[in-house]
Computed example of a mutant assay.
Amino acid sequence: MEDRFTEAELAIAKSVDLTAVASYLGYTVKKVGHYHTLKEMDSIRIYDKSHWFRWSRQYDKGENGGSQIDFLRVFCGMEVKEAVWWLLDFAGYRRIEEKDRKPPLKYQVEPGRKPEPKKFELPVPAPDNCFLYSYLNQERGISKSVIDYFISQGLIYESRHYHNIVFKGNNKDGVTKFASMRGVFDREEKPFKCDVAGNDKEYGFNVPNDESSELVVFEGAIDLMSYVDIFSDYETNKLALGMLADAPLTTFLKEHPQITSIKFCLDGDEPGRKAALQLTEKYYGLGYDVEDCPPPAGYKDYNEWLVGTKLNFEVSQKVTHLCKK
């Protein structure tokens, strides 16, 4: 194993859902108000699904909380490097040796008990997509015609409960294997984002076209939709990873062997740029024609580029109108 990790790899490790990790390791996760706890240890508090604190050991420095890495260090007896590798593997980014081997729980409860996998069930659709249209069009600048297209293809819809936007990831036969949700009511500038329980992280939100040999890859579904809006591209294959790991890309390429070229349209921030460099090198080495296509300088992602372009156009139109008076 390598001794050092890139910042992008560490960011992926620290983006893993800590409640999913705890559940996978055999703990019973319960939501209480704005945090989660564990049935086996109710002094544990998991906040934002990313960090934890243990009140029963609040004075034990190094044993009382931290990140996902610290959780594996304390409760599985892992070294830091081993914990990072395990999290990368859990996210689908890397495969460690003996991938089916679970680390022993330092505080094992009910030895030998295997948690039952959650059943994958799509959220119930709302009677209409009113909030979906309002959010994607008014807040994210996506044209109604583009939204119409994705709805007509059965790729997005509005859920009945909470009115979240559901993004579906289908396999080559059109069977939904993955789904993520995005809230339309951001509170305190904190967006609600999560994957539907029980989904297969080997898949991502995608738009296939067996007649095209080109694939365009994004981090998020809204960036994918924004790209379609900017370039009116309804012809190429498109895939949103939902993360910086490439497990969904590996699956898509296996299911669509006609693809020979890949455009990586990842974010313009530091993690996105480092991931793009790694992925272009990897897939060039695998024989694909690759191209790194970040958003223009000054824009974080394709949606920010879309919104900025439309805003600039509106301003120019207003200036033109005033000059004619």
Score class of each variant (00 low, 15 high):
240 A>C: 13
116 E>K: 15
272 G>Q: 05
243 M>H: 10
165 I>Q: 00
42 D>E: 08
308 G>H: 13
216 V>N: 11
52 W>R: 08
162 Y>C: 05
165 I>N: 00
156 I>A: 07
103 P>D: 12
108 Q>P: 00
95 R>N: 09
190 K>V: 08
315 V>Y: 08
278 Q>C: 05
68 Q>T: 00
83 A>N: 07
188 E>Y: 14
280 T>W: 04
153 Q>N: 10
81 K>Q: 04
34 H>Q: 12
43 S>I: 02
300 K>T: 06
286 L>H: 13
57 R>Y: 12
320 T>A: 11
131 F>M: 13
267 D>G: 03
208 P>Q: 11
33 G>W: 01
95 R>L: 12
64 N>Y: 03
73 R>M: 13
124 V>Y: 05
96 I>S: 08
49 K>H: 12
47 Y>M: 11
198 G>K: 05
133 Y>F: 09
218 F>T: 11
111 P>R: 14
104 P>C: 02
280 T>F: 05
260 T>P: 13
181 M>P: 01
2 E>A: 11
223 D>Y: 11
203 Y>D: 09
198 G>E: 10
220 G>A: 15
278 Q>F: 07
169 G>I: 01
211 E>C: 04
228 V>G: 09
321 H>Y: 11
137 N>S: 10
105 L>E: 10
137 N>H: 12
97 E>I: 01
262 I>C: 09
243 M>S: 13
225 M>A: 06
309 T>P: 13
274 K>P: 01
92 G>V: 01
187 R>E: 15
214 E>L: 06
266 L>Y: 13
245 A>E: 15
283 Y>T: 00
175 V>S: 03
7 E>Q: 11
303 N>W: 08
235 E>D: 10
304 E>T: 03
31 K>M: 04
15 S>P: 03
93 Y>T: 00
21 V>N: 15
325 K>Q: 08
241 L>V: 04
